[in-house]
C-alpha cells in the first residue's frame, strides 16, 4: 500500500539550493494574520508538484521559510501559498504586493498518497491553517471524485471569523458527495453550527472504520486527540496519514535540522503514515 514515491521525485529542481524567482500575481487576505499568494515563475517555465509538498520561500536578503503548497496541482498557470505571519520573514512577506518577486526552492517532501487510496472513504481532519496543506489533496480528490467513496471534511477554527477558505468549505458542503463539518471553539449566541473540539466532530461524523483513509493536518499537540478519535471510529494507524513540523532548512535531507527519529522530515515527511511513527510520536523532545 505504501508504494508511493518518497522524496521529490516530481519536479525535482536542478540545483535545489538556489532560489528560482517567482512573481506575485495575486495577494489575498484570508483570515486575520493569514494571506495567500499566487506565484508565477519569472523564467516562464513550469512547476510540477504533488499534493502535500512544500516550498522554501525566499525573500531577498531577509531569509527563507518552509511553506506548504496549497493550490491545485493541476493548475499549470500558478502555484498558491497560504502563509501565516509567524516570524520576521513571514511578517516581511506580508507587506509584499502584486508584481514583487520572491525566490522559490522546491518542491520538497513526501506528498500525500493519491493513487494508493483509490476506492476508500476519506476523512480529512484539520483546523485553522492546517487546511492549507490539505487543500491540494482535496482538490485532487474532487478532480477524481468517482475514484473514492465517501468524503468527509472535519475542520475546526477558533471562532466564526477565522475559518480558512470559508467560501470553499461552503461550496464543498453544498456538494451532495461531500460532508463538511465545521466546528468552532466559541460563537455568538444564535450560531447554528457545531461548537467544540475537532476530535468531537470526528466522533460525531459517520465514519465507517473499515475502508476509511484519514488525513490529519494539525499541530503536533492536536494530532494526538485527532488520531485517538479516529482510532475510536475504527480507523487503524495504517490508514491514518499525518503531517509533522520540524525545522526545515535545506529541503533535501542535507542540513540535518528536521530529523525525526531516523527520518529527515523534509524528505521522508512531512507526510507520514501514522503506523510508521507511532512508536516515536509520544517521545518527548525527540
Amino acid at each position: 500500500m505504501d508504494g508511493y514515491p518518497k522524496g521529490n521525485a516530481v519536479g525535482a529542481p536542478v540545483d535545489p539550493m538556489i532560489p528560482r524567482p517567482f512573481r506575485i500575481t495575486k495577494v489575498k487576505s484570508e483570515v486575520p494574520g493569514v494571506f495567500s499568494w499566487h506565484l508565477v515563475p519569472v523564467d516562464g517555465g513550469g512547476f510540477a508538484y504533488r499534493p502535500g509538498q512544500f516550498n522554501m520561500l525566499y525573500l531577498f536578503g531577509v531569509g527563507e521559510v518552509a511553506i506548504s503548497i496549497s493550490g491545485d496541482c493541476r493548475d499549470g498557470e500558478k502555484i498558491v501559498h497560504t502563509i501565516r505571519i509567524a516570524g520576521s520573514v513571514t511578517k516581511a512577506m506580508s507587506s509584499l504586493s502584486v508584481g514583487d518577486v520572491i525566490g522559490v526552492r522546491g518542491p520538497f517532501g513526501r506528498p500525500w498518497p493519491v493513487e494508493p487510496i483509490y476506492g476508500s472513504d476519506l476523512v480529512f481532519v484539520t483546523g485553522t491553517i492546517g487546511l492549507a496543506p490539505l487543500r491540494p489533496l482535496i482538490y485532487e480528490v474532487l478532480h477524481q471524485r468517482d475514484k473514492f467513496g465517501r468524503v468527509i471534511i472535519c475542520y475546526g477554527s477558533r471562532g466564526t471569523d477565522d475559518i480558512l477558505y470559508e467560501d470553499e468549505l461552503h461550496l464543498w458542503r453544498g456538494r451532495f458527495d461531500t460532508n463538511v463539518h465545521v466546528t468552532v471553539h466559541s460563537a455568538p449566541s444564535g450560531y447554528r453550527g457545531r461548537i467544540g473540539s475537532v476530535a468531537a466532530a470526528v466522533r460525531a461524523a459517520h465514519i465507517e472504520g473499515g475502508d476509511t483513509q484519514a488525513f490529519v493536518c494539525r499541530s503536533e499537540v492536536m494530532t494526538k486527540p485527532a488520531v485517538d478519535a479516529l482510532h475510536e471510529r475504527g480507523v487503524s494507524s495504517e490508514r491514518i496519514w499525518v503531517t509533522l513540523e520540524r525545522n526545515m532548512k535545506c529541503g533535501i535531507g542535507l542540513c540535518g535540522h528536521c530529523q525525526f527519529g531516523p527520518t529527515f522530515m523534509c524528505r521522508d515527511g512531512p507526510v507520514y503514515r501514522f503506523d510508521e511513527i507511532e512508536h516515536l510520536f509520544e517521545i518527548r523532545e525527540l
Binding site: 483570515v31 486575520p32 494574520g33 493569514v34 501565516r84 505571519i85 509567524a86 511578517k91 483546523g127 485553522t128 475546526g156 477558533r158 477565522d162 471553539h185 467544540g196 473540539s197 476530535a199 468531537a200 499541530s219 499537540v221 492536536m222 486527540p225
Partner: peptide, 19 residues
C-alpha cells in the same frame, strides 16, 4: 472533560492571528 482540556491546549497554542 478531555475534549475541553484539548480545546484549552489548542487555544493556548494556536496563534490567534496578528491583527
Amino acid at each position: 472533560l478531555a475534549q475541553n482540556r484539548e480545546r484549552i491546549v489548542e487555544l493556548a497554542t494556536e496563534p490567534a492571528g496578528f491583527d
